[in-house]
Amino acid sequence: MFEAVFSQFRSIWRILGHSFSRAETVQYPEQKPYLAPRYRGRIVLTLDPDGEERCVACNLCAVACPVDCIALQQGVREDGRWYPEFFRINFSRCIMCGMCEEACPTYAIQLTPDFEMCEYQRQSMVYEKEHLQIAGTGKYPDYNFYRVSGLKIAGKDKGEALNEASPIDIRSLMP
């Protein structure tokens, strides 16, 4: 009982002590907070180091999205690459959780430290591929999915990917 009463007084005293501590508030928008590169803000689509679209339209981001705000359709380019025919993020639904980035096997989808994306029209929060695509590699400058994947594309034949042996000649009798 005494302890309970004492603890009340102690907390009153401690709170009173805070009269002399500095406010933690960052006075946004006059002061901008520091945002780390890994901050989860506006989502972008990036290019691989060769300047080609990184997204292969595998749909993993869409399925990882807890609010289901990503929709896309796969297509196949002439050169054999998979690409999104359209790629749409409804930012009015997005909760910036970063699961899509976690799920992306090609580092195509990335979250950026930009969170200032208010609009007067909700419709303007719907971003299509042309709004999402940036002209760079984002946080991962070196990764190129097609150099690792076994898929044949123009300029990379079977067996030319990372850690691949050249194609087997099945008519050979050599062991």
């Binding site: 009173l16 805070h18 009269s19 501590s21 406010a23 933690e24 006075q27």
Partner: peptide, 8 residues
């Protein structure tokens, strides 16, 4: 309250 909660 702001002062005691370290804000403005």
């Amino acid at each position: 309250l702001g002062i005691w909660q370290d804000r403005y």
